[in-house]
Every structure is written in structure tokens, then in C-alpha cells.
């Protein structure tokens, strides 16, 4: 499976972008059927005219570059942060934009509809490059500089550890509060990695029942998490 972490070197045009098409500028589309559309607090999803932005950047329009940055900066930061941690994060984000804008200006991105795919590829390359560098440096300097690169820092963050422990405790409470059958469903899905179809088939569930169970468990998980966040956590985690 090819996720952002496992990347290789791909040319701009090699990013397939199969689902991307030229889209209408500033068209705002309302949520309709997909379950992801009734997301609380979400903003309406703006459809961009990539061709116009690419053309303007190619022409050296500084405003277009700012626009590109505004669209992608947070997403790029997110993936870099998740994979590499916070060290040199701003520099890495900047590097990604330099690569993207240069590729556009040099005419390497021939199909503007593939801009998103290309940005993704650039981010993947940056992550892979950073990991390669870290592995290489670790191999070279293992005796005297074990932590010179921040890959493990993010995961070993004490705050993250506390949050992780709290979440585990909340998950334990949620699991204790549901029936054995419901727990089996969650176990099959999350631990045994069975598909929804297989679980429903073997346990005589409808897709709706399956979703409802997970939704209830998630809601309870979220509610308990909010209580912890509001400061009731000590009692909650102690007494259950």
C-alpha cells in the first residue's frame, strides 16, 4: 500500500490524478449524500480552478503563489508533521512550495488538473528524503548522536504519551460499557482487521447496524474524552 510515508521518486506527470478534472472557479458545493458531508464545523468545500492558478503562477503572478500557499500550506504541514515531527517543519514546507512553483514555472506540470497529485508527490518525496537522510545519518553517527534527527521525537513526546494513555483508558471504559457481542464486532474490525462485509455476513448484521454500533462507541469515546479535557478526567479515570 502506498501511503505518504512510503514514497518513491515520481515525475510530475507520473502522478495520475485520475479523479481530477478542470473545475469551475469558486464553485461552492453543498453536502448532499456522503456521510462525510454532515461533519460538524466543516466549511463548504471549494472547488478550485487549478488551470487558472497554474497559468498565473507560470506567468509569475505573486498573488497566485500566495493563493497556492494558502490552499496547500496547512495540508502539507499536516503530513510533514505526522511523518517527520516538528523539527525544521517550516523549512520543509517552504521546500515543498519551491519545488512545486519551480515545476510549474518550468512547464513540468503540463496538466494543471494534476496539481493536487503533484503536490502530494512532492510531499511524499520530501518525507522519503528526510527519512533516508535520518537513517543514513543514524547509521553513520550512531555512536555519538542517536537523536540528531527528530523522527522519533514526535512519537516519544511525553504529552503524546499522556494523551495516548488517557485515550486507552477511555477506550477501556467504552469497551466495558458495551455488550460482548458489540465488543466482538469491534475486535473483529480493529484487531482482526476483518472487513465490514465479512463481519456483517458472519454475525448477521446489516451495514446500518454495524455503523450504528461503531458510531455509538465513537460518540461515547468522544464524550468521555471531552469530560477528561474539561478536567473531570481524574475522577473519570479513577472511578469509571
Amino acid at each position: 500500500m502506498t501511503y505518504l510515508k512510503a514514497l518513491d521518486h515520481v515525475s510530475p506527470e507520473a502522478t495520475t490524478g485520475a479523479v481530477l478534472r478542470p473545475l469551475v472557479t469558486s464553485r461552492i458545493v453543498q453536502a448532499e449524500e456522503d456521510s462525510g458531508l454532515d461533519r460538524p464545523g466543516q466549511e463548504q468545500y471549494k472547488i478550485r480552478d487549478w488551470a487558472q492558478i497554474v497559468a498565473r503562477i507560470r506567468d509569475g503572478d505573486a498573488a497566485a503563489m500566495e493563493e497556492l500557499y494558502a490552499i496547500f500550506a496547512r495540508g502539507i504541514r499536516y503530513f510533514l508533521l505526522r511523518n517527520l515531527g516538528s523539527e525544521e517543519l517550516d523549512d520543509r514546507v517552504h521546500d515543498c512550495f519551491v519545488i512545486v512553483t519551480e515545476a510549474i514555472q518550468n512547464g513540468e506540470l503540463r496538466d494543471p488538473a494534476r496539481l493536487m497529485g503533484y503536490v502530494r508527490t512532492v510531499v511524499k518525496r520530501q518525507i522519503a528524503s528526510a527519512i533516508d537522510t535520518a537513517v543514513d545519518q543514524r547509521r553513520t553517527h550512531v555512536d555519538y548522536d542517536e537523536t540528531m534527527f527528530g523522527i522519533t521525537d514526535f512519537n516519544d513526546d511525553p504529552e503524546q504519551s499522556i494523551i495516548s494513555r488517557q485515550r486507552s483508558e477511555i477506550a477501556r471504559k467504552v469497551l466495558l460499557s458495551i455488550s460482548r457481542r458489540d465488543r466482538e464486532i469491534l475486535d473483529r474490525f480493529y484487531v482482526q482487521e476483518q472487513t465490514q462485509e465479512q463481519i456483517c455476513d458472519e454475525m448477521g448484521l446489516s451495514a446500518t447496524q454495524f455503523r450504528l454500533l461503531k458510531s455509538r462507541a465513537k460518540t461515547r469515546f468522544g464524550n468521555l474524552g471531552k469530560r477528561v479535557a474539561k478536567g473531570f478526567g481524574r475522577n473519570l479515570l479513577r472511578t469509571g
Binding site: 464545523g41 466549511e43 496547512r74 495540508g75 503530513f79 502530494r120
Partner: peptide, 9 residues
């Protein structure tokens, strides 16, 4: 992932 790059929500 393409969508996640541009969608905060």
C-alpha cells in the same frame, strides 16, 4: 490524500 491536502475539515 489529495483531498486531505486541501481540506481542513
Amino acid at each position: 490524500e489529495n483531498h486531505l491536502l486541501v481540506c481542513d475539515a
